[in-house]
Design a protein around this nucleic acid. Structure first.
Lengths: 231, 231
DNA sequence: CAGTGGTCTAGACCACACA
DNA sequence: GTGTGGTCTAGACCACTGC
């Protein structure tokens, strides 16, 4: 008996042909039925191979028009959304959390713009620090839209951070991220133990459930922080 | 006739049960066969729904052990790998490119470690600048393994950057990325027109084809640069 | 209209991990 | 051993869209 054809082997072979320019960029490759016959397998097997290649952006598929090798593939990396406690504990360091500030306030103008929320909306403003082995690792400045998560007003956040609570209690459907290098402002610098103006890594995140903004967070990392990912 | 059950509707319903805590975090959900019976569809349909949820990190699946709702789901964002020319032109600015340095050299020790290549391997070392409307936007320091892409030695890279050539000519199968904030070193600072020590955004990328490293690039962006993504 | 991909079905066999 | 997911098959119908 010969081995059964797997969708992985089909995917591999098509990938090889793309790499070796047997299937040229922009060119339409044979239809599923033809490939299934060539590889001696069911069409569903070819379909799965091509679907994954399409998910990865290497080919583009359209009904009737066929499958085309992507001309200039915009490759995507999967970026794990960091959960600070896990990230710290993964390095073998001990995680510690400290609440610095907690206050319910009217949303300032810039936040109303960011979250697209109404004038006079009440938000919970939190500032906290995350330590790795007692060295300050991240300063978190967070604003939570109380209207969307009323229960948040009852939590004191003295024992654990708002991110852990939100991840557990409030599902989100959409998020936007921004990453940048910045000069440490005096407040963050003081908390992180660096000099004002020193380079820090700043990550910002806004999260929605449906069309309602839940929270905005600005996370400032000490300069040694390095975010990594791979394909 | 009632509508046919789709894998999308199954996925939707399971997602709803996870959100509404019908399926609790950490809990094992019913096996595919049971769900297929409940939803009145084939097991393959349930399988595809659960496979996608697993790809998205919301459930974890193991043979024999079943499907478990992920305790602390690590969500992933898709990060588009920036192609500098597109990124600049997308802002409406004009893109300009300048080659600063081009030399074939023996790979230095740190690069041999990074790329896992042999002693005495020849690499092409390039330094170039990318401008947005004549303001320096990115300084690129790039090393290319000539053994993997011999044709690269014949290209002068005076008209366009190595990234565009590599994307077009040398497919890659694997890449690693690192992002960090750093203090500008004197060379990069001079090219970018900032003061040494100023915060800059540094992106590093190593790319492989199979198990052979193709290239390592360190890209230094002026301080205003902000990388964004969304879910 | 007709070719292509998108999806579902019913059944089958297998690999793995736990009892 | 035994139950669960992983995958393949052969066939079917449908949706989209270019011709």
């Amino acid at each position: 008996m010969t081995e059964r054809t797997t969708y992985r082997s089909v995917k591999e072979e098509i990938l090889r042909r793309i790499r070796d320019r047997v299937f040229q960029p922009g060119e339409v490759i044979p239809p599923e039925t033809a490939l299934a016959e060539e590889f001696g397998c069911a069409r569903a097997t070819v379909n799965r191979a091509l679907r994954e290649l399409s998910d990865e952006g290497l080919v583009e598929r359209k009904r009737r028009a066929g499958t085309r090798v992507t001309e200039a593939p915009v490759r995507h990396a999967r970026l794990a959304i960091p959960v600070i406690r896990n990230e710290i504990e993964a390095t073998g360091a001990q995680y510690r959390y400290l609440l610095i500030h907690r206050e319910i306030v009217a949303a300032p103008q810039w936040l109303r713009d960011t979250l697209e929320i109404a004038l006079n909306a009440a938000v919970l403003h939190l500032q906290c620090l995350h330590f790795a082995d007692d060295r300050p690792f991240e300063f978190e400045d967070r604003w939570i839209n109380i209207a969307v998560a009323p229960a948040v007003a009852e939590i004191d956040f003295r024992e654990s951070g708002p991110n852990e609570w939100l991840v557990r209690e409030v599902p989100f459907s959409r998020a936007e991220f921004g990453f940048a290098a910045a000069a440490a402002d005096p407040a963050a610098a003081g908390h992180l133990g660096v000099r004002p103006g020193d380079p820090v890594f700043v990550a910002e995140r806004t999260t929605w459930l449906g069309d309602r903004a839940i929270t905005f967070a600005r996370m400032t990392f000490h300069a040694g922080y390095r975010m990594t990912t791979r394909i």
